[in-house]
């Protein structure tokens, strides 16, 4: 505790001008820190969407559109199978997997039969329509309208041999992991789905 004991002596010997300059420096630093922390109070969220099944396409889009309604700055970075969500044609034909899903009302041996994924998908699509749940296409259009930045991983676009024209208008292309990380570092909420 010797440093505490020394402090009053230093204060006593410092001139008023020195102290004033010191206070001004501290106030400037505090203002900088406040600005860095506060950021106008606007929250932001980054989601990494990696799955392309019908059930896994919903959570990123529901959270993204809702966060946009809160006025948040939202980025959804789509990579690997998550890219199918942004693909205009494929997004309308996303499938539900019947196999390996314990919530399916059928044993795996039956679920593995040909066309069972189509049967499960049709059942789900019927429920979605009956429940008034938005379609994937509606959620994408809504998210884009609300200013959500839907990003398509450039590496995956090339890996899957997609053409940039095949994605919805308004989707950001030409971005990679570094862009995603940059948003994640600044975001209040980061999710990988």
């Amino acid at each position: 505790m010797s440093s505490n004991a020394d402090a009053p002596v230093e204060t006593a010997t410092a001139s008023v001008e020195d102290l004033q300059a010191h206070v001004e420096t501290l106030e400037a630093e505090l203002a900088d820190l406040r600005e860095a922390v506060d950021d106008d109070g606007q929250k932001s969220m980054t989601i990494i969407a990696t799955k392309g099944t019908l059930d896994m396409a919903y959570p990123p889009l529901i959270l993204a559109s809702t966060a946009a309604a809160f006025g948040w700055d939202v980025v959804v970075f789509h990579t690997f199978w998550g890219l199918e969500i942004l693909h205009e044609e494929k997004s309308k034909n996303l499938k539900l997997s019947a196999v390996g899903n314990p919530s399916m009302p059928m044993p795996n041996a039956v679920a593995a039969l040909p066309f069972m994924d189509n049967v499960a998908t049709s059942m789900m699509e019927k429920k979605i329509a009956e429940n008034g749940t938005a379609t994937i296409e509606e959620l994408i259009e809504t998210s884009l309208d609300m200013g959500v930045d839907l990003q398509a991983c450039q590496m995956t676009i090339e890996l899957m041999d997609y053409d940039e024209d095949e994605f919805y208008d308004g989707v950001t292309t030409g971005v990679g992991a570094a862009t995603a990380l940059q948003h994640m570092a600044d975001a209040d909420v980061q999710l990988m789905i």
């Binding site: 529901i62 559109s65 809702t66 946009a68 609300m146």
Partner: peptide, 13 residues
């Protein structure tokens, strides 16, 4: 007839 997230999203608009 609309379910989550549409009531919130449409309210915002």
């Amino acid at each position: 007839g609309l379910s989550c997230p549409m009531p919130v999203v449409k309210t915002r608009g």
